[in-house]
């Protein structure tokens, strides 16, 4: 029944824009097509209007987003500082996959956008079903965070 359903009602996975977007995210580096499909199966596609908040600063954080289409701005609403302007293919909020701390900044769509949400609960499910795949994602996540830490250290050293 599932095969029948997949054949007639679901898109061909090779041209799936969600899979293509996930492929370009470093957190999912080195994942096979099948593994990416398993990740895609657990993600949530969302549509945001212009100026709609994706999340607000200090809100409870549950996961990360990948921009499928559109543009998003990450900023500190108190000081007005814009931390990043992100476009199609970029991702943000990945720290929430690891800890339960509230969001450190706000994110809002600066144009109508389509995002893919991948949340901590999805990662936990994935780690339960496919521990090997979960480990790959965790290792990639650690690598991304490590790179950021190194860059921050370099910038700090430069500014001193």
């Amino acid at each position: 029944m599932k095969a029948l359903y997949n054949n007639y009602f679901r898109k061909n996975s090779k041209n799936d824009p969600v899979l293509k977007a996930l492929e370009s995210v470093p957190i999912f580096d080195g994942l096979s097509h099948k593994e990416l499909s398993e990740v895609a199966r657990l993600t949530h596609e969302r549509t945001y209007k212009k100026d709609e908040h994706i999340f607000k600063q200090h809100a409870p954080a549950e996961g990360m987003y990948v921009i499928l289409d559109g543009a998003v701005e990450i900023k500190d609403p108190e000081s007005g500082t814009i931390f990043a302007s992100l476009e199609t293919g970029d991702f943000f909020g990945e720290l929430a996959l690891l800890d339960e701390e509230p969001r450190s900044a706000s994110a809002h769509a600066i144009q109508p956008s389509r995002l893919i949400g991948f949340f901590r609960t999805d990662l936990l499910t994935l780690m339960k079903i496919y521990p090997e795949l979960g480990n790959k994602i965790m290792l990639n996540l650690a690598r991304v965070l490590g790179e950021r830490l190194r860059k921050t250290n370099e910038e700090l050293a430069r500014s001193n």
């Binding site: 409870p60 549950e62 949340f119």
Partner: peptide, 13 residues
Amino acid sequence: PNKYLEVGLRMIY
């Protein structure tokens, strides 16, 4: 709704 997405997911979990 988008506004309650993360809270909703946490609730389901």
